[in-house]
């Protein structure tokens, strides 16, 4: 799930980041806000690319309208090949108990479909899984694959709508409209981007009828090794009443994870530090 999102605040890091992303932004006077495209690009990096790699224990609670609850517990690792570019994810499932030892590997490429593999321990089989729909649910939760690994900023047209406080935080409110409306399940999205950390604090997804469908909120943000990280996230489907809460614990960045971890072989025999 969810991966990672964080924010990098260390000054050196921030400078590098800014240079990467937003050359015109730097040239402007400090008071002038960056363009909406830059805001989204920064938020994308802050949320999905902090550090070179990371590991976290993720506990998801899927809560149905009736109050029924399903739990998923997993360890997730991520390694970036390039900021804003290619990434690899390795996920080990702890719970529910009957899926223990299932592992999941994702190679993510900007601009084309991911590669995904899944190991099914009951039949000792690794299967490649087609990834045609990035909007589909991740493990039955209210988060889609895209919510977890990020949506390419270039896929939408962004407009700054207003600036306002959300909670105690000053935020930019950016509206994003998909360039290819047929490709996604939402008609537009509003993001509240924190001016200080660039993290999205809240997102509202409207369906194609213009009705509010899903709401994301960053419930808890912590600095981990200097990277601002949303450690508790909530995605609520306001139409079905279903919601998913994801809590990240034991977050570590820059572990110098070995590239081997992100291989088919590791799927069958994941390293001990992941399975604990």
């Amino acid at each position: 799930m969810v991966a990672v999102m964080t924010k990098a605040l260390p000054r050196a890091m921030a400078a590098g980041l800014l240079a990467l992303l937003a050359v015109p932004g730097l040239a402007r006077p400090a008071a002038a806000p960056p363009s909406a495209d830059e805001m989204i690009a920064r938020a994308h990096l802050a949320m999905f690319y902090p550090g070179e790699d990371m590991r976290a224990r993720v506990t998801m609670r899927l809560v149905s309208r009736a109050g029924g609850e399903r739990r998923r517990e997993l360890t997730m690792t991520r390694r970036d090949l390039q900021d804003g570019g290619e990434q690899r994810y390795f996920i080990y499932f702890h719970r529910p108990p009957d899926v223990r030892d299932m592992t999941f590997l994702v190679w993510k490429y900007p601009g084309r479909d991911d590669d995904r593999w899944l190991y099914v321990p009951a039949i000792k089989l690794v299967r490649r899984i087609a990834a045609s729909d990035r909007r589909s649910s991740f493990a039955g939760s209210d988060f889609s694959y895209e919510d977890i690994s990020g949506r390419e900023p270039e896929e939408d047209t962004h407009t700054l709508v207003r600036e306002e406080k959300t909670g105690a935080r000053d935020a930019y409110v950016v509206e994003s409209v998909p360039k290819d409306p047929g490709s996604v399940d939402f008609g537009r999205k509003l993001s509240w981007i924190d001016k200080a950390t660039w993290l999205p604090l809240k997102e509202e997804y409207y369906d194609r009828r213009g009705e509010l469908a899903r709401v994301f909120t960053a419930e808890e943000v912590k600095a981990v090794q200097g990277f601002w990280t949303v450690t508790k996230r909530l995605m609520k489907n306001v139409q079905t009443g279903h919601s998913t809460e994801a809590v990240l614990s034991d977050v570590r960045y820059n572990l110098k994870l070995a590239p081997d971890l992100f291989s088919e072989r590791a799927l069958r025999a994941p390293p001990a530090e992941l399975t604990r």
Partner: peptide
Amino acid sequence: PETKEAVGQYLFLFSMSAKP
């Protein structure tokens, strides 16, 4: 399938991509 684990894992796999 023969075991409860297999059933659980199949359904989990299914839920990885299907509509909730």
